[in-house]
Structure formats: structure tokens, C-alpha cells
Design a protein around this nucleic acid. Structure first.
Lengths: 178, 178
DNA sequence: GTCTATAGTCCGATAGAC
DNA sequence: GTCTATCGGACTATAGAC
């Protein structure tokens, strides 16, 4: 990350990264499948955290509630890392390669959540919809969280996004203008 | 596509593709930014089709209705190409590289739709939510459409997915088990 | 069209930890 | 003795510079 900020993502070679870490290029590829993965190394843990939280929600909760509870369980973790999250987010947004990787990670996560919902007895297509909808809410909330000068929590942003989604999905002919 | 089917995506080099087309490797990169793009060449037209359709829906329609109308406008186009769509979909699903590209294309499309909604007067975050939700519905519907032995239309699948989403998003404590 | 850097693979060698 | 981490060299394909 330091190197990427110093000289830019494209201008940083795998050799550079390895050298800075006191290793060789081969060793790098031993730990990471490709260059992009260095920015996503924590993602397994992130997935586990969320999946566990979904699994732990009472069965009385609706599928969507369970999904949102899963994402919200990361709120504390993110709270301490807002500046880093902001930087990382900018870096990803600026590099299509990284954005692609980010998207496939989010999709893998959504798939894992779908599986947990199915374990809980949710029918397949409802599970998919709940998990994809939850992901959309998370993305909107995360974006708001990153840029919010008032620094509300991620959970706060997710609750707001959820209420808004309910209005958007409702069959009402007219939608409030703000 | 022929080459990819013949010898597999990974085993096909850009040189192979260029040779088959009677061109050189450099010329290939003149037309496509990278190897993956050959499978997404029609995507600009796809985006235009949908964006135009969203723009053309009456303002009385809700944002989500407009988004869905956009996606549904591709139903006829897809109807004639079900076998090809199926093959392409399998190819993409089998190759993470291609899946990444597919996802970023879908995200670009969602972004374009969001912009059109904003032009129509929908507030930014509602626009994002409507467009992301619409994308989720499309994905679920497309998946069902591809595998449906009864060969219902894409529009049919989208209507079904939408009804299901409404149940999923509703605040009901209990959700129907099928 | 030429030339070149970089990413990423394959096979194998080596060394330390437990 | 097995497991795991590092390293080396040769190699191909992608992709960018010119």
C-alpha cells in the first residue's frame, strides 16, 4: 500500500513490492495469486465475519434482516479504519483492474451469504434476491459512510439505506423527492 | 468464440485469434483493449438499448419501474439468442477473468442507469438503490431464463423476480417457505 | 510493425521449525 | 521426517511504448 501511494499502482512492479518486503518475486507469487490480491488479503476473514453473523441471527428474522445483520456486524471493525478504508477505496476506484477484483470479491461474498440463507431454509431464489439486495444496501451505505463528514457509523448508514430501499421498491406511483 | 470452444479460453492466445482472423497480434490490440474484451464487444450497444429505454419510460413510472422497463426492453433481443447466451454464460462462469469483466460491465451499466434516473429527477441515493436493485432482479431473472426448460421470456422471469423481491423486502416477520 | 517490460507459470532446490 | 517458506532460472503471453 505504501508503494502504491508513493509511485502509483501501475508504476509499482511485483519486483518492487517483493524487494520492499525483503523477499523475491517468486515468494510474492507464493503468497498471492496475482498483483491485485495484495489489496484483498483480508477478504477471507471479512467473509467469515459476515457469514458467521448471518448464521447467528435468530431464525425468526427475515432473510434480508439476516443479511443486513451480517454486514452490520462489520461496523465496529470499520469504525477504527475509516481513513484507511477511504484511501483504499480511492485506489480501487481509480484502477479498473482493482475494481474488477473488488466486484468479484463482493459477488463471492454474496454467494456465500446466499448459501447460509439456504441452510436456514430460505428458498434459493429468495435467498439470492435477499443477498443481492443486502449487498446493494451495503454498497450504498458504505459509500455514504466513507464520505460522511458527520462520521455516523456504518450501521447507521445501513439502516438509512434500508428505509430508502423500502420506499424505492414499494409500488407507490410517486416517490418522495428527497 | 469458436477458438475458445475448440481449445479453451486459457489455451487460446491473442496470436491465435489474430491469425484465425487473418490479422496480426498488434491489430487485435488495436480493436480490443485486452483479450477479454472480445467477448464483450456488443456491450456498448446493450447499454445504449437499456439506457434509451429507461429514458423513454413515462415520468409517472417509479424509478424501479423505469429500470426494469429498461432491462425488459432487451427481452426480444435475447429471445433469438438463447443458445448463444447459454454458451457465453457458461464460458464466463468458468473463467474468473471473464467473470470479473462481466461484473464491471454490469456495474458500468448500473452507473449509466443511475445517471438517467437522476436526469429524471430521482434523488441520487434512491437512483443508485433503484438501479442496483434492478440489476439484482435482472441477474436472477437472467439466470432463471437461461435454465428454464419451459423457455418463458426474459420479461416473464423479471416480473416473477420482482414480485419475489417485494416479498423479500417487506417487513413481514415470516416469509413464505416457497 | 518492432521492441521491450511485466505478469504469471513450471519445475525444482534449499533451508529452518516442529 | 514432514511441513512450510524461500529462492532460482527458464519460459510464455499480455500489453504498452514507440
Amino acid at each position: 500500500m505504501a508503494l502504491f501511494v508513493e509511485r502509483g499502482y501501475d508504476k509499482t512492479t511485483v519486483g518492487d513490492i517483493a524487494a520492499r518486503a525483503g523477499l523475491t518475486e517468486r515468494t510474492f507469487f507464493n503468497h498471492f495469486a496475482d498483483k491485485r490480491e495484495v489489496l484483498f488479503s483480508g477478504s477471507d476473514q471479512f467473509v467469515k465475519q459476515i457469514v458467521d453473523a448471518v448464521r447467528a441471527t435468530p431464525k425468526s428474522a427475515s432473510p434480508l434482516d439476516a443479511v443486513l445483520a451480517g454486514y452490520e456486524s462489520t461496523s465496529d471493525m470499520f469504525a477504527e479504519r475509516r481513513p484507511f478504508a477511504r484511501k483504499r477505496s480511492e485506489m480501487i476506484a481509480a484502477h479498473p483492474d482493482l475494481l474488477e477484483r473488488e466486484l468479484i470479491k463482493m459477488m463471492t461474498l454474496a454467494g456465500a451469504i446466499t448459501n447460509v440463507l439456504e441452510e436456514r431454509g430460505t428458498p434459493a431464489s429468495s435467498a439470492t434476491l435477499a443477498s443481492e439486495t443486502g449487498a446493494a444496501i451495503f454498497r450504498v451505505a458504505f459509500e455514504a459512510w466513507i464520505h460522511d463528514p458527520k462520521e455516523h457509523s456504518l450501521t447507521f448508514q445501513m439502516r438509512a439505506a434500508r428505509r430508502q430501499l423500502e420506499r424505492v421498491v414499494g409500488r407507490a406511483k410517486r416517490v418522495a423527492r428527497s
